[in-house]
């Protein structure tokens, strides 16, 4: 009887410990996106966006050493990172070019833009970094291939500043992609 009482006390004391509330972050463009009528691009369409598998998790990723990462437990993405990246890039490319990139299956004659994000994380010394590739495919032939690799210092300590820095890096990537979309001379 004494042992049972002791276990109950210990269990109750364990439950009494205070849990840490997780923080959720969203990847969205920081630019102003005013209401306007959008027109779909006839020359270009969005193909695949590939995200490195290590990024495909809820926790934000910290690069703590060479080839060593740590996903945060209490700082989480509010949605799958794939959706966040796709939403941000399409919005910023559309803003830069004035035309919305439609899915490739809806624009069969268009040049297809394919994107791959190899790296998108923060470091303990206060930087965010990105490594990405994009390539244009026309008539089953790769006509352009580019790489974007950059890091950016955080404006403040903490994960919120890291998400802001990653957002800025993705916006910069969107501008580079938009600049590479030069329409072919029409027949």
């Amino acid at each position: 009887m004494k042992v049972a009482c002791l276990l109950l006390v210990m269990l109750l004391s364990g439950c009494a410990s205070q849990a840490v509330e997780p923080s959720y972050y969203l990847l969205r463009s920081n630019q102003d996106l005013p209401s306007s009528k959008l027109s779909p691009s006839v020359d270009f369409a969005l193909g695949t966006i590939e995200i490195a598998p290590y990024l495909n998790q809820l926790g934000l990723v910290i690069d703590i050493a060479d080839s060593q990462i740590r996903p945060a437990v209490n700082h989480l993405w509010a949605e799958p990172i794939y959706d966040g990246v796709r939403t941000l890039l399409t919005a910023d490319i559309a803003k830069a070019n004035g035309q919305e990139l439609m899915p490739a299956k809806l624009s069969k004659d268009a040049t297809v833009v394919n994107i791959r994000i190899d790296k998108l994380d923060g470091t303990l010394d206060g930087r965010a970094q990105i490594v990405a590739y994009w390539w244009l495919v026309r008539n089953d032939e790769v006509i352009d291939l580019n790489r974007f690799s950059k890091s950016r210092a955080l404006s403040a300590d903490g994960y919120s500043a890291m998400v802001d820095a990653e957002t800025a890096l993705l916006e910069e990537l969107a501008k580079k992609i938009a600049a590479s979309l030069v329409p072919p001379p029409h027949k």
Binding site: L7, M10, L11, S13, G14, C15, A16, S17, Q18, A19, V20, I62, I64, R70, A72, V73, N74, H75, G122, T123, L124, D125, G126, R127, A153, L154, S155, A156, D157, G158, Y159, A161, M162
Partner: peptide, 17 residues
């Protein structure tokens, strides 16, 4: 940890150098 409370896991914080 089921019986005895454990200290909550703390994520490393990126700090501006």
């Amino acid at each position: 940890a089921v019986i005895f409370p454990s200290s909550p896991e703390v994520d490393p914080i990126p700090e501006v150098s």
